[in-house]
Design a protein around this nucleic acid. Structure first.
Lengths: 201, 201
DNA sequence: TCAATAATTAAACATTTGTTTAAATCAATT
DNA sequence: AATTGATTTAAACAAATGTTTAATTATTGA
């Protein structure tokens, strides 16, 4: 049940998603995809007109999925603190399974500004989400809410992007890294709340 | 004085560095490099044996530069608080000029584990730096220092990686983004110190 | 069952791309 | 000035790559 729908088209798309997110558009060939998906080369073009279109389809779905989840969580009916924990916990779980997602999104989005522009609708939905407004109300004077939104994303997402580096630098194993990230589910919300209520000096 | 040494070899290397960091290895061709550097195609192979070797040379220098700077700053003779400000401020300035560096490093390092292994020496030097030891001493019980080191890097580096997304999501302009990052030079050290001295509850 | 549509295959095509070659030009030395 | 070596150039080559074609097989619906 990990991957439903084993139609040929889906086999190609899921394989391509994995390969593209692992190595990026430029390092993956249509033959790589066909071979890894165990289908005939021509089927890639048969089901998706071109490598480019296949890539765009995948990028669209990945961004849609990532951002869409965020919007849902940020409009949840729980308290601010609970939503904070929810967002952090949800993305740590998601990225523990798909650690390549952020680098893929960031690096390929840069090459496709127009796709990003189309996603602006979702971006707007994020800014208008309940969580974002509650965050704005709690900001210390003089510090705009975007700073704290950056912080939540930074603390949650960056470690996965820097994972190969961090593992090499610290001698961590895969499992130890995952435990470190699990620990952050509780720590990050605490840290963020601490930032929002800075000690008076 | 921006780019010294306008020998042909250097023109090629600097152009390649820019293009590789912008688009990644797979999306850049030797012809792109030659054309942009305004030199004959064959000169790329004449001065650097192959596209691969050129890339490795550049990746080596980039990682060396990035990590090396960190080691120097983290062994500085100032107080812990000052070193913290120094590291953050230094990297915000560096990345403001070269915002593509982190994605390049992260995405390409993943494809070259052996290069990373060779850099392990530097990683060790980071762990053994004065700053890291002082950080360890200040950690609250039960939270390993790597968590806070992750935080410093996350809060400093991630916004540059997510820049295209953040700009799109917030409608920020280039200049506004830079100002936001400048503001973080003071904020991040405060936030980190706050994390190290959590409010008792 | 049989026609029609969809799916699959092997092969080929046209570019692109990394690399090499061999000749030409330039610079320095004798 | 002549020679030597380094540098540059245009052209070509071979392999890789995205895509298409035409034939074959499988599936569906009447």
């Amino acid at each position: 049940m990990t991957k439903k729908d084993l139609t040929t088209a889906n086999k190609i798309k899921e394989t391509a998603r994995r390969l593209f997110t692992e190595k990026g558009y430029g390092r993956i060939t249509t033959r790589d995809i066909a071979k890894e998906a165990d289908v005939n080369l021509a089927l890639v073009n048969y089901y998706f007109r071109s490598k480019d279109e296949l890539f765009h389809t995948i990028m669209f779905e990945v961004i849609q999925g990532f951002m869409g989840q965020m919007v849902v969580l940020m409009n949840d009916d729980h308290s601010f603190e609970e939503k904070l924990e929810l967002v952090v916990s949800n993305y740590i779980d998601l990225l523990s399974e798909q650690p390549n997602l952020p680098i893929f999104m960031m690096s390929e989005i840069r090459n496709h500004p127009q796709e990003m522009a189309e996603r602006l609708g979702i971006a707007k939905m994020i800014r208008e989400a309940k969580f974002f407004k509650e965050l704005a109300e709690r900001c210390p004077e003089g510090v705009p809410p975007i700073q704290f939104f950056m912080n939540i994303l930074s603390l949650t997402v960056f470690p996965f992007m820097g994972k190969p580096m961090i593992e090499a630098a610290t001698g961590m194993e895969q499992q130890q890294f995952n435990m470190t990230m699990q620990m952050r589910k509780k720590l990050i919300p605490q840290w963020i709340l601490g930032m929002l209520n800075p000690p008076k000096q």
